[in-house]
Design a protein around this nucleic acid. Sequence first.
DNA 1: TCACGAGTGTCAGGTCGCTGACAAAGTCGG
DNA 2: CCGACTTTGTCAGCGACCTGACACTCGTGA
Lengths: 225, 225
Amino acid sequence: MRQAAWVARCVGRGSVPHLSPSDLELLAAELSTVRFSRGDVVFVAGQMSTAVWVVRSGSIGLFAGAGADRVILSILRPGDLDGDVSMLLNMAQPYSAEALEDSICHRLDNELFVKMFGQHPELARRWLTAVASRLATSQQRLVDLLGVPLAQQVARVILDEAVDDELPYSQATVAALLGARRPSVNKVISDLQRRGLIDVGYRSIKVIDAAALVAQAGRQTAART
Amino acid sequence: MRQAAWVARCVGRGSVPHLSPSDLELLAAELSTVRFSRGDVVFVAGQMSTAVWVVRSGSIGLFAGAGADRVILSILRPGDLDGDVSMLLNMAQPYSAEALEDSICHRLDNELFVKMFGQHPELARRWLTAVASRLATSQQRLVDLLGVPLAQQVARVILDEAVDDELPYSQATVAALLGARRPSVNKVISDLQRRGLIDVGYRSIKVIDAAALVAQAGRQTAART
DNA sequence: TCACGAGTGTCAGGTCGCTGACAAAGTCGG
DNA sequence: CCGACTTTGTCAGCGACCTGACACTCGTGA
């Protein structure tokens, strides 16, 4: 029950509208909760999606490619959902999903998801907002990576992905986020540590001097013609 | 009138549902048509979006960054729409839009757009599909660019953006699509031409041997764990 | 039809990031 | 508390891509 309310809150972050008690019952009936340990696979690329996932805690990485060229498209955090797009477009999952930390997710069967959002326009609107927000994020990622030296890419990804000024991922994970190689990323990270901008631990990066990191990231504030 | 029907067809490509005659009247009342010459600016990054644009003909490039680091996030083609995301998220335009060819666009004021889609659920659903489709495309672009050698990136972009086996853009534009520099891209293109895969002209690339280009692009067919 | 701007072709030199490898340090289950 | 595994730190060599430049060709508008 409480889970259903939480899902309703999270779809379309920041918005406030609630579900009615009857909605909650409807949701809770089909809503299942699944725990994943770090490294567990949530779904695999190439399969048709049968359910929509909502992250409750932890973080889930979306992986594309294989072997050394495996790349992380995005990291899902609590409140994020996935599987809806490939369901909507009736396509196979274009990426695999894997827990980057011990995580808890909710699973909604496709049919239920569609029914729910078909019946409740204001919920559908928040869904639309959620998808739009992911699109904006994905495009921002393109801007952050295209034609930018690795030192800046690393700074940007640290700033973007850090929660409470901490990044609980291995440097190999950071490299996969950038489509770069671990030794190259390590060189940048070591340099940032020596300069006192971050603190590096085992599978952990902590932000010490956020302002300096922002300078390092060197984002354009405005894009002039 | 005919314009309004066209917009209804295009939102959410491939779907067939029509608007009712009254919808058409409603749309046509506020729908304006604007012509752009190559190089004309449609909207500028940093501004709040006041309207949603639908491309009727030609192509519109979405640019981020400034000067030599200007990068193309996406190329809008007939049927594509833009401006809706930043309206929905109530944010400033994160990129500028500029005509890459002589183009014709339709403009819908935000208010009308919201009203239309609020009143017509099946239209709203196709809008959702359109946004989801753009998200999938944006993510595919990340996969196509991250950690991939330039020779493959160029082949992929030619295959993806070509219409009728032709790409009517300058090599500088192709370079901006990749976040790479023109001389580097030119080297790859010259090589492809020498090998007979493409034909290069003034502001034009034609695909000759699509199969060989696909091989050159070297995309992973499936992503294994 | 001529001049100018836009686009293409090319190059030498420099730098950045990759390759492949190895040692050292941290973590965790048994 | 030990051994296996994961993660970090580092390096030399190399290749890919960038920098900045210049000549040449193609359109286009006066």
